[in-house]
Design a protein around this nucleic acid. Structure first.
Lengths: 199, 199
DNA sequence: CACAAAAACAAGCGCTTGTTTGTTTTTATA
DNA sequence: TATAAAAACAAACAAGCGCTTGTTTTTGTG
């Protein structure tokens, strides 16, 4: 029952603890206790504590990049791509809130080239958002958009999500994305089209 | 020269290190080294490491609350209050980016009632934003606003700021606030009124 | 200059950290 | 049921942790 799965279980437990107490605030013994084994026994499965953090963050990065890439490569108006992109982003956060928390909050505890590697993936991700917005300007959909600040507005909203999202909340992740996107597209003073009663 | 100032100097140094390496990632010896004294000598000035974190975060909370309170108590249309509120928020972040980083990123390392106290101040702060938005709905300025998500959109943007703001950037903090507010009020597809060339 | 207060030193306390090593137990399979 | 591999134990390591104590140096002020 625990052949190849034990490593995954450790990863999940570490992820949960890192998200709750932070990487530096979590000890190897915290993790081994939660696994029900002694601290030394962990090292039959892992090479180092930082390896755990790296594995968690690199998987997080992959989730975000893969799901956004699909949207970027799709066809349709930029506003629709934007909506699907935010849906994808929020879906990733919602489906694994603990990993998302570690990815956003603890990645800077990495060192050396692993730190740089994750930084690079984050840059990649932002660039893909930039592409969508730029396409919307080129096509005339977003007339004279303040591109950089539009990107920051959207990414801030998506990146802050892990601070308040609760899996047992009343709204599905797509609904959350749509409500944000309605606001972002038409603004606080814009006309409504069902942003309050939306289903 | 260092009568009452030494404590402040220690606080500043701790703030800088906490913002760079995190609370748990910073040691007492990191701080004392940066101060040019031995680790034990620090304890002539402080009671504990956590006291440093508490002092930094409580000052941060005070800055945000005080500056927003002034805006809430002022008169004028809600959209103008909203603009002034975001200006105030971003000004606080910009004027002390390190303290803001600790306030937003490290406050959860506090324990016991101090943790609860800061949590409470954060709730207070969000409530004041809620008030401004609610006033805008009551007055008819924001017709059928999705209140909760509007608040989250604005707060996410403000709270994420510490991740990317650089004090030596080209834009003054009020300009940053205004660009965001222009987007937030009229939306990505809304008409412009000088959001790119704004003064 | 004298002197008390403030600041820093020097040494080390008890404990925890991440990790290693050698041995024993559990497990799946032949 | 024998056996090899996988997993966990038991014990400890060197280093580092936050913090305390007793003493010395520095400092501002009468």
């Amino acid at each position: 029952m625990a052949r190849v799965k034990r490593k995954e279980e450790i990863l999940n437990i570490a992820c949960k603890l890192f998200s709750q107490k932070g990487y530096h605030g979590t000890t190897i013994r915290d993790i081994s206790d939660a696994c029900g084994i002694l601290a030394g026994s962990l090292y039959a499965h892992i090479n180092s504590k930082e390896d755990l953090l790296y594995e968690i963050t690199v998987r997080g990065a992959r989730s975000f990049l893969d799901s956004l890439r699909q949207v970027v490569q799709s066809k349709g108006p930029a506003s629709e791509k934007l909506r699907q992109a935010l849906r994808a982003h929020i879906r990733v956060v919602a489906e694994n809130i603990e990993a998302a928390t570690v990815f956003f909050h603890e990645w800077k505890a990495l060192t050396g080239e692993r730190l740089q590697q994750i930084q690079q993936k984050r840059d990649e991700y932002e660039q893909m958002w930039e592409e969508i917005l730029h396409e919307g300007i080129r096509s005339g959909e977003f007339p004279a958009l303040d591109e950089k600040f539009a990107r920051l507005l959207i990414l801030s909203t998506g990146n802050w999500l892990y601070h308040w999202y609760k899996p047992d909340g009343p709204l599905a992740s797509d609904e959350i994305a749509d409500r944000f996107m309605n606001l972002i597209l038409t603004g606080l003073m814009g006309k409504k089209e069902g942003s309050v009663a939306d289903d």
